[in-house]
Simulated assay, not measured.
Amino acid sequence: MKHVSKRRTGVVVAVLSGLAMAMMSTAAHADEELDVIAHRGSSGMAPENTAAAVDLAIEQRSDFVEIDVQRTKDGKLVNFHDCTMERTTDVEEVYPGRPRYRVSDFTWAELRRLDAGSWFHEDYAGEPLMTVDEVIASVRNTRTGLLAEISPCGHYVGIATDFAQNLLGKPRYVQRALAEGELAVQSFQVDDAQEFHALMPEVPIGFLDANRPTEEELLQLSTWADQVNPQYTVTDQALVDRVHELGMDINVWTVDEPGAMRRMAGLGVDGIITDFPQSLTQR
C-alpha cells in the first residue's frame, strides 16, 4: 500500500484448496513490499464480509482486510459485496415477495435478521451481516489495516461522501491508521474515487480495473490516485513497472492459485488480494 513500510525479504506460500494443503515457497523481491490483503476477509475459509471472515483474517495476520461499503435504506453503512443479497443470505426466506433484494431496499434492523453464514457452511449458520463501524472496531487495535471498496452498484448516489463523513467522524482511528499505513480506499468508479479523494486526500485512494489500463488512463490516474489495482490476469511486468514509474502502487486481485501468487510476487506487485491470506502469511 502507498506509504506502508512493511518490508519483507521473502514470503512463504501455503495454498489451501478445500481440505488439502500444498506447501511451496516464493521469494518476493528483497527491496519490494508485498501486502497480504484478505479479500472480503478470509473468505476462502469463512463466509465473506462477516465478522467470522474478518476476525479470521486478523488472526491469520493479514496486512489488510478488504471490505465492500454499501448503504441501507436508513443510511447505515454495511459491509456487503453483491448488489443484491440472494447469493449469500436467506433474504428471500425471511422477506418473501419483496420486489427487490438490494441492501439499499432494507433498513439495518431488517438486515440484522438475516443469516449470512449458512450458504457457506452449516457451522456458520446464523452469522449476521456486519456494519462498517463494526469492521473498524475489529481492526482498529490490531496490526491489520483496512482496504475499503466503495460499492460500484449503480443505484447509489453520494455513497463516497457518506463513507468519507463516516471516517471523518473517527479522527483518532484515521490518524493512527494513516500513521501506521493501515487505511486505504478503492473503487471501480472514477467519480466515486475522486469524490472520496476530494474530501479525504490524505487517505490513499486506488482505482480498481478488471481490464488492463491504457497508457492514457495510467497518466490520468497518476495525477490523483495512489494505487492502480487490476485483475491479476491482465497484469504483467510492463504494467507493474509503468505503475511504479508513475509513482503509484499496484495491488492485484483475486489471486488464489499458488502459481499465480508466485508469478505476481515475482513481478514486484505491492499487494496480493486473496481469498486465502493464510496461504501467504502461514498463519
Rank of each mutant, 00 (worst) to 15 (best):
S5A: 12
R8M: 11
V11Q: 12
V12T: 14
V13Y: 08
S17R: 11
S17T: 06
G18D: 04
A28H: 10
H39L: 03
M45P: 01
D55K: 04
L56V: 00
Q70I: 05
T72H: 08
D74H: 09
G75F: 11
F80N: 04
M85F: 02
R87A: 04
V91H: 00
P96G: 01
P96C: 02
R102V: 04
R112H: 06
L114G: 00
G117N: 01
D123E: 06
Y124W: 02
Y124K: 02
A125G: 04
P128C: 02
P128G: 01
E134Q: 15
V135P: 07
A137R: 15
A137I: 00
R140D: 08
T142I: 03
R143T: 14
L147K: 06
L147H: 07
E149T: 05
S151V: 07
P152G: 09
H155N: 12
D162E: 13
A164S: 13
Q165T: 15
L167Y: 14
R172Q: 14
V174D: 13
Q175S: 15
G181H: 06
V185Y: 08
S187P: 02
Q194W: 14
F196Q: 10
F196L: 13
F196K: 11
H197Y: 13
P204F: 06
A210L: 13
A210N: 13
E217F: 09
L218W: 10
L221N: 09
P230R: 07
Y232W: 14
H244C: 07
E257M: 08
G259P: 05
A260Q: 14
R263I: 09
L267H: 09
V269T: 08
D270A: 07
Q282P: 00
